[in-house]
Design a protein around this nucleic acid. Sequence first.
DNA 1: GTCTTGATTGAATGATCAATCAAGTCATAT
DNA 2: ATATGACTTGATTGATCATTCAATCAAGAC
Lengths: 203, 203
Amino acid sequence: MNSDTRTRILMTAMELFWEKGFGSTSIADILSRSQVHSGSLYHFFPGKQDVLVGVLELYRDGIEEWLLKPNWDGVDDPIERIFALLNGYRIQLITTDCTYGCPIGNIALEIHEPDPQVRELLAANFTNWSRAVERCLDAAEDRLPRDTDRAALAEYILTVMEGAVMQARTYRELGYFDRNIAMLREHLGLLESKARAEPVAAV
Amino acid sequence: MNSDTRTRILMTAMELFWEKGFGSTSIADILSRSQVHSGSLYHFFPGKQDVLVGVLELYRDGIEEWLLKPNWDGVDDPIERIFALLNGYRIQLITTDCTYGCPIGNIALEIHEPDPQVRELLAANFTNWSRAVERCLDAAEDRLPRDTDRAALAEYILTVMEGAVMQARTYRELGYFDRNIAMLREHLGLLESKARAEPVAAV
DNA sequence: GTCTTGATTGAATGATCAATCAAGTCATAT
DNA sequence: ATATGACTTGATTGATCATTCAATCAAGAC
């Protein structure tokens, strides 16, 4: 089985969906950039929607290797890992003049009536992302107030990332991203000092 | 001049762009729902893009009357006004089974290469929104730490709203919105208690 | 009364779209 | 050798898209 073609289609579609969105990317766009003919594409994928499914599965399965590992290399402090992850998005914004955002967030807002498979894959991508952040918060458990809902805080950090990228992209100004992340950092700082003020737990 | 038709086109387009997005709304969609014929639409608007411009101008000019006034009626406390505004989005989510989000955020992420006029109108909508929040923060100045960057905090509140709506829509679960807003409320609470702990300013 | 201007009608155009399919290639199994 | 089945080719289809335009209408100005 030749899955080179399938992979080339998915990688190309991934690029294009990120650049132009799902709706604005035509099958013809994918074919010409990937140097694949329409029959081959439809041999591997029943339709355009299934290409999107394949791309979302790639993202879902690649988060560890392609997102976390590069950004966390050399960063040990769990809280700093969170900001290292956010810094990855900052670098994307810089290298694209604030035009590219989060590929998942883009698609999530673009597709208004997703079929269940697509919706679940978008949700799975969000869940994997915030679970990774949650693990960082768990590792920093003793620096946070005892009643901290770490899962909710991780979702919130995803929220801030998505909103910050949205604004930086809309204004075409990195400052909007930076100020938002600074606010988040201040929030986490307040939580840490609140934790320090708590009486030590009984052993 | 008969601008009834123009208005009907814009109101219909506003609805449709919100329901299905800009790209997925065809001119034919607008024509059939608004009971207008193509020639009339093109009499008032050079093209589809200009309909979008008209819609974004309506949003920009209507924020006071259609967004702030309804949500702030009977709410005097400036901080509570912020959460009353956010509650407006919560109600939209409830009444649409978590399918509709922020119309501006949707378009901002959908349009990848906006022409300058569209990009500036999106930015203007964001700016008007966060300025309204900033005015609330200004009114609550004495309850916040003295070094608070209220403009940045207002941008951050917009960020949290957009991210929270995105997640609730993606998961089709209101809880994601609620937990995010609860986190924001906790953050503002921490700021208020930090302000209370500050020494009184010299007069 | 006729001229002018703004507004409306709706069929037509050409581009682009996702998807199809019959004919072909090629490696491997028998 | 030949048969099989995975894969490729690329022209083609029919739907849908934004847009155009000549014709028509309504109503105030001269």
